[in-house]
Design a binder for these strands. Structure first.
Lengths: 111, 111
DNA sequence: TGCATATTCAACCAAACGGTTGACCATACC
DNA sequence: GGTATGGTCAACCGTTTGGTTGAATATGCA
């Protein structure tokens, strides 16, 4: 059961949360480990993870005393499909893409 | 010059703004005509259009006394590409998609 | 038992958001 | 000139957001 686009896009609008998703792309992680690279409190990260979970972008499973966070690609894929409808009739501007993605990689949301 | 993902996703998180984008997919429109189907003030729609323009999702051009709004697919496409990276390694769950998109179409953001 | 670790909860704060209203430009038309 | 139309601006308002802190809860371990 996928969350509405509202929640998905709102969740993706925050650079910290996008960075978390990128980390989870590598592997599942415990909350504390997710929090480690960020210069903010554990509680703040816990809230961010709650937002991501509400949006259906991740799931959390508690095993023992640690809560594991797992990427859930379906929600994002649904949003991606919605978006693609707006671009499919025009040729892709690849140069613009590359400049864009490069800027994102070097931006503040990739600490 | 594309706006950062922050602005793009934040702009997409609002159902009114997504509905506006869907309308502009059909054709360019004047601000007043964009506002017409919505149960809110012209000023509110003007603000929404400002958010969309800041995110690079639309451009606005004033001809005479009417300001024309035009969809600008590059920004959304850039965000779409970013998102696709999260789904490309797993098979697409098409059933989930369809249920999702259907729910969106019948939702309150398509008045 | 007692203590450390993992995580959340609750209260608070400043800033941003989404909307309203009324006044204000700018352009078109008689 | 005068008036209607198209759109923005500015001030305001209630709610949400992103963060903090300190206390609380739950699990693991000696």
């Amino acid at each position: 059961m996928t969350a509405p686009l509202d929640a998905i896009f709102a969740a993706l609008a925050d650079p910290t949360r996008r960075a978390i998703l990128a980390m989870l792309l590598e592997d599942d992680m415990a909350v504390t480990d997710v929090a480690h690279p960020f210069a903010m409190s554990l509680a703040a990260i816990s809230k961010h993870l709650g937002v991501l979970a509400d949006a259906g972008l991740i799931t959390q499973e508690k095993r023992g005393r640690v809560k594991w966070c797992k990427l859930e690609p379906d929600a994002m894929r649904a949003a991606s499909v919605w978006m693609q409808g707006f671009g499919q009739f025009e040729p892709v501007n690849l140069d613009a893409f590359e400049r864009f993605l490069e800027a994102e990689l070097n931006g503040p949301e990739n600490p």
